[in-house]
Amino acid sequence: MSSERDLQILPIVQESVIHNSKTLYNFQSLTASLFGVAAGILGLESYHGFLFYVIMTLLTSTVFYLVRIAPTSLHSSKSLVDTSAYFRSSFEFWTGGLFSGLAGYILTWTLFYGLVRA
């Protein structure tokens, strides 16, 4: 939890947090559809397809974190894995994409699986 002094030095602006959440949601939705295309073309079935989705989504969150958040976290006194200054919660950042992009993933996965295997 941030102290009052920290919040005065670097205030958390709710509009920015909402913007960051929308940007992350759009990024995860787009990549989920791309992962569905890849899984369909590769011909993944059943648990292998879902495992591919989970691994790729967590990998995408990690890359997003390393590119966009970690460089700014180096200059503050906060922990490197703390995303509360930029997002509503760390849980939302790391696992939000698993649930928000699942429908798009399944849709494109089955579409491209059917197109390639037909």
Score class of each variant (00 low, 15 high):
residue 1 M to F: 15
residue 4 E to D: 11
residue 4 E to V: 13
residue 5 R to Y: 14
residue 6 D to A: 10
residue 8 Q to R: 11
residue 9 I to E: 13
residue 10 L to N: 10
residue 11 P to E: 02
residue 12 I to P: 04
residue 12 I to L: 08
residue 12 I to S: 07
residue 13 V to M: 03
residue 15 E to L: 11
residue 16 S to Y: 14
residue 17 V to E: 05
residue 18 I to F: 07
residue 19 H to A: 14
residue 19 H to V: 08
residue 21 S to H: 08
residue 23 T to P: 01
residue 25 Y to M: 11
residue 25 Y to P: 01
residue 27 F to H: 12
residue 27 F to A: 09
residue 28 Q to G: 02
residue 29 S to H: 11
residue 30 L to V: 06
residue 31 T to C: 02
residue 31 T to W: 08
residue 32 A to Q: 01
residue 32 A to W: 00
residue 33 S to Y: 03
residue 33 S to N: 05
residue 34 L to W: 10
residue 35 F to S: 02
residue 35 F to I: 07
residue 36 G to W: 01
residue 36 G to M: 02
residue 39 A to C: 08
residue 41 I to P: 03
residue 43 G to D: 09
residue 43 G to H: 13
residue 43 G to A: 07
residue 43 G to E: 09
residue 44 L to M: 12
residue 44 L to C: 08
residue 45 E to R: 09
residue 46 S to M: 04
residue 48 H to N: 01
residue 48 H to L: 07
residue 48 H to K: 12
residue 48 H to I: 02
residue 50 F to P: 04
residue 50 F to L: 13
residue 51 L to G: 08
residue 52 F to W: 11
residue 53 Y to N: 05
residue 54 V to L: 12
residue 54 V to Q: 00
residue 55 I to W: 00
residue 55 I to E: 00
residue 56 M to R: 06
residue 56 M to E: 05
residue 57 T to P: 00
residue 59 L to I: 14
residue 59 L to K: 09
residue 61 S to K: 11
residue 61 S to Y: 04
residue 62 T to R: 04
residue 62 T to E: 09
residue 67 V to E: 07
residue 68 R to T: 11
residue 69 I to P: 00
residue 69 I to C: 02
residue 70 A to C: 09
residue 71 P to W: 04
residue 72 T to V: 14
residue 72 T to Q: 11
residue 74 L to Q: 15
residue 75 H to F: 15
residue 75 H to C: 07
residue 76 S to H: 04
residue 76 S to N: 06
residue 77 S to E: 15
residue 78 K to C: 07
residue 78 K to T: 13
residue 79 S to A: 11
residue 80 L to A: 08
residue 80 L to P: 06
residue 81 V to E: 08
residue 81 V to F: 14
residue 82 D to S: 07
residue 83 T to W: 02
residue 84 S to L: 03
residue 85 A to I: 02
residue 87 F to D: 07
residue 87 F to H: 12
residue 87 F to S: 07
residue 89 S to C: 02
residue 90 S to I: 01
residue 91 F to E: 00
residue 91 F to Y: 05
residue 92 E to I: 03
residue 94 W to G: 03
residue 94 W to Q: 05
residue 95 T to Y: 10
residue 96 G to D: 12
residue 96 G to Q: 06
residue 97 G to Y: 13
residue 97 G to E: 11
residue 98 L to Y: 06
residue 99 F to R: 01
residue 100 S to N: 08
residue 100 S to V: 14
residue 101 G to D: 06
residue 101 G to V: 04
residue 102 L to S: 09
residue 102 L to Y: 14
residue 103 A to K: 11
residue 104 G to M: 01
residue 105 Y to T: 01
residue 106 I to G: 01
residue 106 I to A: 05
residue 107 L to F: 15
residue 108 T to I: 02
residue 109 W to N: 03
residue 111 L to V: 12
residue 114 G to P: 03
residue 114 G to C: 05
residue 114 G to M: 07
residue 115 L to V: 14
residue 116 V to Q: 10
residue 116 V to M: 15
residue 117 R to M: 13
